[in-house]
């Protein structure tokens, strides 16, 4: 099998397209690169969707955490504490074990049967946990940013008669994003790294469809040699990190476009809020 054929056969194997059986002989570098790369589809899927959905929840959480009313503040504080205070590994486990307790036949509400079996699949269950997890971490970042908005900016807005929703939408929120963005970039990078935990902890792989680490593990197991597949997956993740840094850097430039050149916040190599 030439390398091109291997890519055709296994390039989309992680989502069930292509050759049914995983390679059993040879284990060439091409096979390893192709399958581990194919597994990266899952890492991207979890990372991108969790980030997108988590972004909105994080905003809501950050706002309710900085609210005056304890009814809005306390739940947000607890949510953030529980998800930031415990290891993601254990969150995955608990989520999976709780989801499998749901009745298999579905739950009946008002005569409509809600199917439950899909919730235990990684694409749904693990995504949900990652979504809540990144929302909690990002909420803390945005909360911190919200509190460090310069007082002068807000006073200036009020002096111009911009108040209430307008003040929030046009001054507070954009400034919060701008201030929190470098830390949020770090969160995004580490969220992608955390996607490797999905199939490694509790969620099982169906039909040998798993993420990059699943296939790296498969090859390490078949070839009994961990020194080839794991560096390959490391290579893919370095590429992914560069890509995330680039995309977030572009957004950062956009967020900073009204700010005088010398005051722009640059994305620095700082570990701010990660798991």
């Amino acid at each position: 099998m030439t390398c091109f054929e291997t890519i055709q056969a296994y390039g989309l194997r992680s989502i069930g397209i292509g050759e049914k059986l995983l390679p059993k002989t040879d284990f060439t570098l091409c096979q390893q690169f192709t399958l581990i790369g194919s597994g990266m589809i899952w890492n991207l899927y979890f990372g991108v969707l969790a980030l997108l959905a988590g972004f909105f929840l994080a905003n809501a959480l950050a706002l309710s955490k900085s609210a005056h009313s304890p009814w809005a503040r306390k739940p947000a504080e607890w949510f953030v504490f529980v998800f930031r205070g415990s290891p993601l590994f254990i969150q995955f486990f608990l989520a999976y074990e709780t989801l499998v307790l749901l009745p298999r036949s579905g739950i009946e509400i008002f005569g409509i049967t809600l199917a439950t079996s899909w919730t235990t699949k990684a694409w749904a269950g693990a995504l949900f946990v990652m979504f809540l997890n990144t929302a909690a971490y990002s909420a803390e970042i945005f909360y911190g940013a919200l509190r460090s908005i310069p007082k002068g900016d807000l006073e200036a807005a009020e002096a111009f008669g911009i108040t209430g929703w307008q003040k929030f939408a046009r001054i507070q929120w954009p400034t919060m994003l701008r201030l929190g963005w470098p830390a949020y970039t770090n969160e995004a990078i580490f969220l992608f790294h955390a996607t490797t935990l999905v199939f490694f902890s509790s969620f099982p792989a169906f039909g040998q469809m798993g993420d990059a680490l699943y296939y790296a593990n498969y090859f390490a197991d078949k070839t009994f040699n961990p020194f080839v597949p794991y560096p390959i997956i490391a290579f893919y993740f370095i590429l992914l990190t560069l890509l995330v840094t680039f995309v977030f850097g572009r957004i950062n430039r956009r967020l900073n476009r009204y700010v005088p050149q010398n005051q722009r916040s640059r994305i620095r190599l700082r570990v701010a809020l990660i798991r």
């Binding site: 059986l21 298999r104 099982p204 169906f206 039909g207 040998q208």
Partner: peptide
């Protein structure tokens, strides 16, 4: 695991034997 995959059934893999039995009990 290899046998199941090679014989046309859909395999679902777990790290420990304990979890495989639990998967049957809870219908996974």
């Amino acid at each position: 695991a290899a046998f199941v995959a090679e014989n046309g059934m859909q395999v679902v893999e777990y790290a420990t034997p304990e979890e495989t039995v639990a998967a049957v009990k809870n219908g996974e």
